[in-house]
Design a binder for these strands. Structure first.
Lengths: 144, 144
DNA sequence: CTTATTTCGGACAAATTTATCCTAAATAAA
DNA sequence: TTTATTTAGGATAAATTTGTCCGAAATAAG
């Protein structure tokens, strides 16, 4: 459903959020360990998330990644997915047609918009805060 | 959402179904044209769909692909997707964890099962017949 | 039987995604 | 200022997916 990059990006962002809620910066190395993702590849993804303004990065000793605490419940899952995978997943045709809409639909168009709207709404309504909270209190997991 | 192979496979199968409803076999070449897919790649996909028993193939002149008419409304979109993309899309974890269930969920688990169940139900309830009918009467399109 | 047609199937190639490596740049602290 | 640490970013490699090519096998028709 999501690309590998997006999966890593979501997990990393959630982990950064948890640490940020405890006023801690966290290093790439630690993130990759806790999220079980390849270090260098994760670096690329975090780089792009930083450019998108979703996370904040700092170089040097005591550097690392963090998210401004007040923004954690403003950032939605949708923002992360959109930053990494773009909006093809939300707007593209289910059968890959260039043009496909209600007037000139592909055979699965009407069935698909329902599913995809559900997905979109879910992503837009899911805050980074609730994902991070669940992880923080041990209700959910990022490894295994 | 689906792989390219799956998109081509779905479109091809729908087209074959339309022709089959008119008691016609159809060649690879015609399918690829009508579906706007690369010929040789489409051949591979049809080959595997034939092995899965979803379509019937015949070599030689007057050969081609066809679907037994009585099976067209029994075959579901789910069968096609499953034959090509497997069941990762239905069972895999949204964040790529090897193990992820209601007892040891990833942060997005509960949100995802809802979406995925919707998708699964839709695919299981959508018959090849209704997809082919819509195309046959010009309500939907496979090109563009 | 020969020929033309069509799918089968293996090998190969291109494109994309995933992943690694290494040097540069920033920066905190001694 | 020097050193150690950490992210940035470019080059490259591996893996996967997508796509091509070509000869083999089947088969219908002359």
């Amino acid at each position: 459903m999501f690309s590998k990059a997006c999966e890593y990006g979501i997990k990393a962002t959630i982990y950064i959020a948890v640490k940020s809620m405890h006023q801690e910066r966290v290093s790439l190395k630690e993130i990759a360990e806790e999220v079980n993702s390849p270090v260098a590849f994760t670096a690329k993804i975090l780089q792009s998330l930083a450019k998108s303004g979703i996370i904040d990065s700092h170089k040097g000793p005591t550097g690392g990644f963090q998210i401004e605490e007040s923004r954690i419940d403003i950032i939605k899952l949708h923002d992360i997915v959109h930053a990494i995978d773009g909006d093809d997943i939300f707007n593209g045709c289910g059968l890959g047609l260039k043009q496909c809409d209600a007037r000139q639909p592909c055979p699965v168009h009407h069935k698909f918009v329902v599913i995809r709207d559900n997905l979109k709404i879910m992503l837009q309504n899911t805050s980074l805060y609730e994902l991070a909270s669940g992880l923080d209190i041990g209700l959910t997991h990022l490894k295994r």
